[in-house]
């Protein structure tokens, strides 16, 4: 089995498995964010649960971090190896004749998403780690804020139009990445042609609905902050 993951196909499968995990995480993240549009209290409750549950914090969170890092590192490794496999490049190459822009530029949409994740970590994740793991404050409340602090913090972040703009652009790249990545992950796992059309439709729906949803949520909070 260890030999398998050293082979080109094994790497492809590993890439797909981490992609599945990240796509599932994204769905979950989206569902929770969506709550914030409908009910601040409900969003606070769920955020507090996610942020303080030991299983999520100490088992799932490290797996998630590993998944993100793995997907990026592997993506870069494959890109470098593939560039090397190419040798001399063509004087004239008509890539658009046989493949989509998305499929040929996964590395660039990927880099855009990586840049976003760094920004997102600085915005939300590092402050959380600081409050909980360094200051040791797991209460979820903050001076001057009524109830839990999460919804309040979320609204504060989306005041800046620059940040909201950056988020919107990042989600467009996420959508482009997913438009190829979703079906690509299934193909890597050996999904058969018979199921392809359905998969493609689900993939397209997922790649548009999720990023668009995130954009709408960000804009909603930008326009509704008090």
């Amino acid at each position: 089995m260890s030999g398998f993951f050293k082979s080109s196909i094994g790497r492809k499968v590993a890439m797909a498995l981490s992609a599945f995990f990240l796509m599932f995480f994204l769905l979950q993240h989206f569902a929770i964010n969506l709550l914030s549009v409908f009910s601040a209290d409900l969003f606070n409750e769920v955020s507090h649960f996610m942020g303080t549950n030991w299983l999520i914090q100490f088992a799932l969170q490290p797996v998630l971090i590993f998944g993100v890092v793995f997907h990026f590192v592997m993506g870069f490794i494959l890109e470098i190896r593939n560039k090397k496999a190419q040798g001399v490049s063509y004087a004239k190459n008509n890539g658009a004749a046989n493949s989509t822009w998305m499929s040929r530029n996964m590395i660039y949409s990927g880099i855009a998403i990586l840049a976003f994740i760094i920004l997102h970590f600085i915005d939300f994740w590092f402050p959380e780690i600081n409050v909980k793991f360094i200051q040791g404050d797991w209460s979820g409340v903050h001076e001057g804020v009524e109830g839990y602090r999460y919804f309040h913090e979320l609204q504060e972040k989306f005041v800046s139009p620059i940040r909201v703009g950056a988020y919107v652009i990042a989600f467009v790249f996420l959508g482009l990445h997913l438009l190829h990545g979703f079906t690509s992950a299934f193909q890597s796992m050996g999904a058969t042609a018979g199921r392809k059309k359905t998969l493609q439709n689900i993939g397209t729906a997922y790649s548009i609905i999720i990023p668009l949803g995130f954009i709408i949520i960000a804009l909603f909070h930008h326009l509704n902050h008090h």
Binding site: K12, R81, N82, A85, S103
Partner: peptide, 13 residues
């Protein structure tokens, strides 16, 4: 030294 497939589908076309 062949590269790794990323499912662009160009080959099939």
């Amino acid at each position: 030294g062949f590269g790794n497939c990323t499912n662009t589908g160009a080959c099939e076309i």
